[in-house]
Design a protein around this nucleic acid. Sequence first.
DNA 1: CACTATAAACTAATGACATTAGTTTTGCAA
DNA 2: TTGCAAAACTAATGTCATTAGTTTATAGTG
Lengths: 190, 190
Amino acid sequence: MSPRAGLDLNVIIMQAAELADSEGLESVTLASLAKKLGVRSPSLYNHVEGLPALRSHLAVYGLQLLNEALSHAAGDAIGYEAVVRIASAYTGFARAHPGLYELTLRAPSLDNKEHERLADKLVNMFLNILSPYGLSEEEGIHAVRGLRSLLHGFASIEGHGGFGIPIDIDKSVAFVLHRFLAGLEKKKGS
Amino acid sequence: MSPRAGLDLNVIIMQAAELADSEGLESVTLASLAKKLGVRSPSLYNHVEGLPALRSHLAVYGLQLLNEALSHAAGDAIGYEAVVRIASAYTGFARAHPGLYELTLRAPSLDNKEHERLADKLVNMFLNILSPYGLSEEEGIHAVRGLRSLLHGFASIEGHGGFGIPIDIDKSVAFVLHRFLAGLEKKKGS
DNA sequence: CACTATAAACTAATGACATTAGTTTTGCAA
DNA sequence: TTGCAAAACTAATGTCATTAGTTTATAGTG
């Protein structure tokens, strides 16, 4: 309605995140975002350096939210219980924030620093909750990669509608985690 | 050089696939493809119904290649050995065909029939190689979903440069599969 | 062998988008 | 109050997909 819409990088990112999650990642354009904000698209360049930069900021924001959700879900737990809780939080996040989630995986051209820091934080959280399994350092990395891959795989395939059969996906996650973690334990006796 | 370039849906798909794998999925535009084919972009509409349709055709083509690669890798094997071989073929395919691979997961608006058929074929292949583990029908579904998710997760994260630490990714896959399959076996005694 | 219908290519035009340049306007701070 | 920096704007360019309408090659028919 007036000049001086009072924009701000944070406002822009929040609205863009909303767009990403409700309309899909590909619908986040400077044009659509500007319309949502009641502004002409060139005005956005006063706050963000272009579409790639916006996506990079969104990726970092998504990673922050994901980190918070997982930390909160894990609480002080470690081991099996923590893995189950984190898995639930992970798939829940991907369902609640499909656009944002998809972006967290993309290699970010900008904001490398913060993105890397958050990714590392995630890895360390996983390492921590797997510590009761008594894995070697290298095995720990393998296991964390496996856990991340498993959770991302489920989230990604579900997000793309890739599971046709009407069997509860959460049950599949629970089943697979149970067996994988059992396999991690089994090592002790072999 | 001349009218009548002798285009053809197959030629178009092959060149598009090449573009997707060498330049990235987002670089597959009708404009870039037309240039590669020595033709003006509207000419492509004589053979394909637009960019979304082209991507849908590419997805089906990618799934075909993936199916072939996995079938070939598995041969007649089942059980552990087959899983290891298929895993290697899967990650190898994703590395050799990053653009095509990414597309195989996308929900296809067109060509639903063929895409579904190929996706089902993949699921059945996985079910077959897991048959020695003596899982119930529902457990089999869970396990297949887990295996797909694991492989897709690794392929997808690797494809996006998400594994920072310089530890061999194939080793991680091998480790995780070993433990997961061990977990599947363990059931018999619990 | 000529001829014609069709399919394949073309040019021209439109509309969405990102981005840049250059201009106006507003609000805060001196 | 005034003036300046930031925030918004308009105008313009270039890329893309897509549609409409035109030309042309070629394959098949007489």
